[in-house]
Structure formats: structure tokens, C-alpha cells
Design a protein around this nucleic acid. Structure first.
Length: 468
RNA sequence: GUCCCCUUCGUCUAGUGGUCUAGGACGUCGCGUUCUCAACGCGAAAACACGAGUUCGAAACUCGUAGGGGGCACCA
């Protein structure tokens, strides 16, 4: 049988990193088993679902390259079908109308609180004749859940879990306004979509027991479930805003590569021996739900960054230049001209080695592209302020001698000769030169940069300091 | 509160009863290299939550304790 997985987010906010990992695991499992990965938007909550949120989810999935099969299914469009199932259950006597008022329900809640028991609907309308119903109340439809015995689920990740049926009550499947609840919708949609494997967050584990009641009532085959542990913040509490970035979009803005985020999320809960850097190809080949751990993982930004810097090193120059084009044009209103492209192609390899994220890479490469005069960073300014102008005036004269053969070995030679004559060490001047020609305090090797920029450009930048 | 789940270095994890004086990665620290560095090289510190039991033998199995997480809506 062909496997079918689904990712079923509710569009009520941003695209959370936890949801992204759920999507990834579904996607990987589908790819690994050569099955299908479907996307369903659970927008039954009209009040909270937004178009923006749907777009964020879609953008995020596309950015991560988690492509889905078939058309997107919008749960809200399936309500007629959900209602039919509820009617059918009603007709079969497996569900019933409940005419409880808000007050009656609140009373049950209070009683439960006093008895220190969890709230459970007392099933007062389960056997009552609907003719006794109060006229002023629109009923909900509740499903008859078993009163005695226990329910067992076999979860691929969590193993076998048994819960006494007394823990469950007759939950609502249709609201009083005639709309289906989540619990009904998921089951009907998963069944209609022929979903074979449900991979979702651990927070849904107890829902499985409720959903089983519906499957049993309809005599439908149950999908196999895998409840993946949640991602926690660095302090072990639920991941939230105060832990920093939690939405996929934020990672993109921070210059994280989709490949890096995928690799990092994959290793949160799943492993393959000692492998850390795992190509997508291997991820698909090796992935299995059985190998997902049961304990929740804390999100570690430092590790993400280190994975990211690895993937940055693998980037091709033209991919980077494409990124730089949009980064520079939106942030600095700079266009990358032909000469800058030439310089970038010569200099990017060195910069890739020391970049933790794309934004940092862009800032570090800026000196290859910026128009004269250069913008100078705070730390670089400090160096420049301290530099002795006469030394650099003399240095320029020396450099001018080799302007027709401005190669790094030559530059190195002539500078060391210059230093000996002046009785200086390289470290006496290197940071000043760096600041003047890159506007930064950190950069690749100076001789390489000088060669790439060429004498004319170097002269301009140093003179700017001397005259400034 | 209640039901369910979880617990190996700071973090992610390897580990499926003997090969574990517990391996890898990130981070930390030290040393080296270099022209700065968030690069590179080498090295170090660092964990089986606790207590019982099963067993010739337990990080691994069982039970308890503690700590953590999740569910308990006319939300999804």
C-alpha cells in the first residue's frame, strides 16, 4: 500500500519552527517510502484563521523546499461532508444532541474543581429524549464514547499507550452553530484523503484517543500515528518569543540557509549514528519514524549557526551574488556592477570560511562592492583614528612602485621591506590598513584583498584617510 | 489537581544486558598557527536524575521517588 502523510497546520499565526519540523518529518517519511505528502489547511476556526497566516505557511514550506503532492485542501470547504457524517452518527444512535446551557456546563466545571477532578461532561443528554429539550437552546452534537474499558493506541514513536475510557467524555463533534469541530474534521478528512500515517506533535497524543471513538463509530481503518516530541526553549519551557526566533520567517531574515535549518531540525530528535551533516539525499534514504526519540529537545541556536556556517561554505559564488544583489539593494541601495562581481568571485571563498550567516557574509563582502567612499564600522574607526598618517603616505609611495605588478607576493615583499626600513612590525600597521581598505576590523588576508581591489582602488581608500 | 509522556556531558545525541574506565557534534577552556578573526590545527574539562529490585553482569529491564513536558474548550 502506498503511504500517505499530511501536514495539517491551522493558519492562526506565524509558521512556527515546531510545525516546520513536523512538516519535515512528514515529508521525509513520504519521500523515504515513495509515498505522498499532502497539505491540508485547518481553517475551521473562522475567527482566528487568516490569509496572511496561510501565506506564511506556504512561503515557509516553499523556502524549505518541502513540496507537497496534489492540491491544497482547505478544511473549511469540507464542512458539508463533515456535517453529513455527524448526521449519520446521529441517525445510527452513535451520537446525540445535547441541550446543555452555558450555566449547566459551568456548574459541572465548578463541581469538578471542588472535587479536584478534571472537568468532564456528565452525559446528561446521552439517553434523554430530545422532546424534553428546552426551546431556547441550540444543541450541540456529542459522540457517545465508551463508558467502560480501556483504549489502546500503538504509536510508532510513543509505543503502546493505554488509557481508561473513564478519562474520556462525550465530546462535541458539531457546534451549536452547525459547524463541525476539529475532532470530527480531522478524522473525516484524514479518512477521505486516505492518510495512512499521521505524524504530528506530541500535544496531539491525547486527541488520538478521542479520534479513535469516531473511527470506531464509523468503522473506518485507523491511520498509524507517530507523535513527535515537542521542541522546547533553551530553558526547557515551551518555546516562545522570549527564546528568540521561533518562526521560520525569522530564521530566513537572520541569514539562515534553508538547507541548514532542515539539517538542524532533522537532528532534533532524530539521529543516524554519529552523523551531523546530513545531505537531503541521505536524509531521505536514512529517515525512519522508529528512530525518532521520545524525549523533547531544547533548541540550541549556537548549533544551528555552526550547521549554517557549514552550508555557507558549500554555496556557489553565483548563488551568493544573487543573494547579495537583493541584500545590498534593499539595505544600502547599491547595485553590484561588473567590477564588483569580478572582485567577489576572487574574494568570496575567503569570506565564506568565516561567515556564520548570510547577513554577516554580506556585511563582510561589502567592501568589494561599495562605492567610494567606504562606510567605516565603529571598531574600524577606532583604528583609523590612531593611525599615523605619515607612515601611510610613505607606504603609498612604495606601493606605487609596483602598481603594474600588483600581486600579493609582490605586495608582501615590498611591505616587509618597508617595515624593516621604518623599524616597524607588521602588526603595527596591519589593523590600520585593514580598517582603511575594508572599513572593518575583521577580513580575509590583507595581501589577497589588496590584489583583488587593485592599486588604484587601494590608493583611493588610503588617500581618503590621509586627507580626511 | 488529574491523565499521559519524558530524564546519558551546558545543549543535540550514540548506546537495544558484557566490546562503556560511556562515543560523536555544538558550546566552553587551553595550546599552536596566522596579519586581525567569529577561520584553521591540536588538546582538555564535562553526563548515565535518585533509590530499590531482576541478573553472574545494568546506562540499557522492573518498580518507586524527584524533576520536566503535554492534554484536560462549542481552539486547532
Amino acid at each position: 500500500m502506498k503511504t500517505v502523510t499530511r501536514f495539517a497546520p491551522s493558519p492562526t499565526g506565524n509558521f512556527h519552527i515546531g510545525s516546520a519540523r513536523t512538516a519535515l518529518f512528514n515529508w521525509l517519511f513520504a519521500k523515504n517510502t515513495k509515498g505522498k505528502f499532502l497539505l491540508r489547511i485547518e481553517d475551521t476556526d473562522k475567527a482566528r484563521s487568516t490569509k496572511e497566516s496561510i501565506n506564511k505557511i506556504l512561503d515557509g514550506l516553499k523556502w524549505l523546499n518541502l513540496d507537497w503532492n496534489n492540491e491544497i485542501i482547505y478544511q473549511s470547504k469540507k464542512q458539508k461532508r463533515h456535517r453529513e457524517i455527524a448526521e449519520e452518527l446521529l441517525k445510527k444512535g452513535l451520537a446525540y444532541k445535547c441541550f446543555c446551557s452555558e450555566e449547566e456546563l459551568n456548574k459541572m466545571r465548578e463541581e469538578a474543581k471542588i472535587l479536584k477532578k478534571p472537568f468532564r461532561y456528565n452525559r446528561m443528554w446521552r439517553e434523554k429524549n430530545p422532546k424534553e429539550s428546552p426551546k431556547n437552546i441550540k444543541p450541540v452534537i456529542r459522540i457517545k464514547s465508551p463508558i467502560k474499558g480501556e483504549t489502546k493506541i500503538d504509536d510508532i514513536i510513543q509505543g503502546t499507550i493505554r488509557v481508561s475510557n473513564e478519562e474520556m467524555d462525550d465530546f462535541i463533534i458539531m457546534r451549536s452553530d452547525g459547524t463541525p469541530t476539529y475532532m470530527l474534521s480531522v478524522v473525516v478528512d484524514d479518512h477521505d484523503m486516505n492518510v495512512t500515517h499521521i505524524v504530528r506533535g506530541h500535544d496531539h497524543l491525547t486527541n488520538t484517543f478521542r479520534q479513535n471513538v469516531i473511527y470506531d463509530a464509523m468503522k473506518w481503518d485507523k491511520p498509524i500515528t507517530s507523535h513527535i516530541p515537542l521542541i522546547l526553549g533553551s530553558d526547557g519551557s515551551k518555546m516562545s518569543k522570549r527564546h528568540g526566533a521561533i518562526d521560520v520567517e525569522e530564521y530566513k531574515m537572520k541569514g539562515i540557509l534553508p538547507s541548514a535549518l532542515i539539517n538542524y531540525m532533522l537532528r532534533l530528535g532524530w539521529s543516524h549514528g554519529d552523523d551531523e551533516i546530513i545531505s537531503l539525499e541521505n536524509a531521505i534514504k536514512w529517515f525512519s519514524l522508529e528512530r525518532i526519540g521520545k524525549s523533547p529537545a531544547k533548541f540550541d541556536n549556537e548549533k544551528l549557526i555552526s550547521v549554517n556556517s557549514h552550508y555557507i561554505k558549500e554555496l556557489k559564488n553565483d548563488e551568493i551574488i544573487k543573494f547579495l544583489e537583493s541584500y545590498y539593494s534593499s539595505k544600502y541601495k547599491i547595485k553590484i556592477d561588473e567590477i564588483s562581481v569580478k572582485r567577489l568571485n576572487l574574494g568570496l571563498n575567503d569570506i565564506k570560511l568565516r561567515s556564520r550567516d548570510l547577513n554577516q557574509l554580506a556585511e563582510m563582502s561589502l567592501f568589494y562592492c561599495s562605492k567610494f567612499p567606504l562606510s567605516i564600522s565603529k571598531k574600524a574607526k577606532k583604528y583609523i583614528k590612531k593611525a599615523d598618517k605619515t607612515i601611510f603616505t610613505d607606504l603609498l609611495i612604495v606601493l606605487e612602485n609596483i602598481k603594474n605588478d600588483f600581486k600579493k607576493q609582490k605586495i608582501e615583499e615590498i611591505i616587509s621591506k618597508f617595515l624593516i626600513e621604518k623599524g616597524l612590525k607588521l602588526s603595527d600597521i596591519i589593523q590600520y590598513i585593514r580598517a582603511m581598505i575594508t572599513g572593518l576590523d575583521v577580513s580575509p588576508r590583507i595581501y589577497d584583498i589588496m590584489e583583488i581591489l587593485g592599486f588604484v582602488e587601494i590608493k583611493k581608500r588610503i588617500e581618503n584617510f590621509i586627507n580626511g
